[in-house]
Design a protein around this nucleic acid. Sequence first.
RNA 1: GUGGGUGUAGCUCAGCUGGUUAGAGCACCGGGUUGUGAUCCCGGGUGUCGCGGGUUCAAGUCCCGUCACUCACCCCA
Length: 418
Amino acid sequence: MRFSAPKGSYDVLPPESAAFLAVRDALSRPAILAGYEYIETPIFEDTALFARGVGESTDVVSKEMYTFEDKGGRSLTLRPEGTAGVMRAVIEHKLHAGQLPVKLWYAGPNFRYERPQHGRYRHFTQVGAEAIGVDAPMLDAEVVALAWDGYRALGLREFRLLLTSLGDSTCRPPYRALLQSFLNRLELDADTRRRVELNPLRVLDDKRPEVQAELEGAPVMVDHLCRDCAEHYDGVRTRLADVGVQWEEAPQLVRGLDYYMRTTFEFVHSGLGSQSAIGGGGRYDGLSAAIGGPELTGIGWALGVDRTLLAMRAEDIALPTRSRVQVYGVPLGAAAAERLFVLVASLRAAGVSADLAYGGRGLKGAMKAADRSGAAYAVVLGDRDIEAGAAALKDLRSGEQIAVPLDALVATIQELLS
RNA sequence: GUGGGUGUAGCUCAGCUGGUUAGAGCACCGGGUUGUGAUCCCGGGUGUCGCGGGUUCAAGUCCCGUCACUCACCCCA
């Protein structure tokens, strides 16, 4: 039996793993700079949390959840997205009882049972940010801008921000009825007719050209916003313009999770084939109440780490390479290896990254390893150096080499590196 | 879940209409040099030809199944 990573999952291996970490850090940094604090919630939650929070009618809940029963007979589900769990934690621990908004960020894996495809995995990693408890257009704009800043910081240029408003409980129901009556007049296949009943907004986002042709002249939500929603949306756009964020109006934009309302957005990139979304989010003012909490507004996003990496590759952006050490020990013989073992420990204690050639390689092999490690300096030590009380310190870029007394090595190296 | 494509070394791939011990480049390991890394020279194949069956005197090559990957649909990060 030869094992392999489960279908739709993948291993993050060096040297690319360095890029994975760098992307995760770059996407979360803007939120950290804006005062968002780190939160970590369980990877599994009560199944009902997602069913109620995300919505029974969504594909995510109806067919993509990894659900299992534990030994105590509880139905648990590996989280398919991050917001519901965060909101649950906020409500459970009454974080909203303090100063608002509650600003949180997180990163980690999510799970959806889907057919794998380029950029679509059953196990995927997202960085998320949520701002809970304040219903202000300015906060919406901040959240969107933080994602924008993260992508820009990575050097991405060919992404677009799609923006719209999905209305709220005042204006969406009448619009929904209006859209349904429009759609019911069209010639549509059975699957699509079913969607008209279940989630008519989703029909607008159908990619099939023949369906799009039918949709000509369909009513769109943004033309039917109530006064409050329209004002809110105007405010968001004004504030986004104030900070230089560029967006495209996307009245057909629909998200896969039921809890979104009002401000809704998606970051798309052309380099990913059909999985074009690299991040998305929106306002979820009804989520808290849907999972049994108080009336509590919120807005947030989730950005795909693996998809962002693919987008960077598509744009030929140089990815951070493997982590390197500054100093590499090259021992000649067992006694020297023992000395160097202690020396690299001292270097590390002094804040200098260091490694040495393990495994009794020959001098040539050890020097090769030093070269590949990317180290600036090699410390070559053999019996005759030990006897002389000095090691050979070699500058691996210039090739120059000097003798340094053993007890002065750490200090000398620190000085050279500063 | 539906349909198409692809699976040969760590990586990228070659292997013609079935034919003998399955190859190349890169990478890797060792040696040239028990005291010096990129170059150079020499040596080393590191392989369940995805897996399982079938056809055949003979299968990496043909057929069936299966698994994985991949592309599109659906959906989404």
